[in-house]
Amino acid sequence: MQAMLAARDLACRRGERLLFRGLSLSLSRGEACHVAGPNGIGKTSLIRILAGLLRPFHGSVESRASIALLDERHALDPQVPLERALAFWSELDGSGASLMAAHRERLGLAELADVPVRYLSTGQRKRAALARLLGQRAPVWLLDEPLNGLDTAGTELVETLIAEHRAAGGTCVVASHQPIKLVEATRLKITDFAA
């Protein structure tokens, strides 16, 4: 089967430091990869390289499908009510308002539609960013620390969402230092590729 996301012989340099090298990765439909490792080892850098936001020091990334990115920065305007902040992205992604309302409901944000984003808690913001991710309907998910700030129920919800996404033929790269339940996922320890 053809890989939806493939990275070949990646190396990443930040400043004068080589974080990792010789890292290759290939994910087909329904597959997932858990990128693990301690802080500062280059998980976020790897995600950003896969998303095409950071140039790798060496190697190449190929993606055959559109990419959705979830990271620590939620890209939701702080002064704008949650519903409008999410509507900007869902309109850009061409998914309807009713679909976004359903995603908000699913993520437990139904009551918060009129609340400006800056009044939301860390966990609620993370849930809002997940709603944006779902609305994008991209086959490749790149999640950087998706569990940060979430409670137990939120953690389980993320695990369910990932499972559903994979069942629908999507693929997913999760970078997390926390344990996350992913069925039959490859586990990539960046420490193995440390320079």
């Binding site: 998303a51 095409g52 559109s66 990419i67 920065r73 939701l76 850009l92 992604d93």
Partner: peptide, 14 residues
């Protein structure tokens, strides 16, 4: 830039 809006736009090909 701080909020990552440009990143999200770039991922969408803008």
């Amino acid at each position: 830039l701080d909020e990552g809006v440009f990143d999200q736009l770039a991922v969408r090909g803008v």
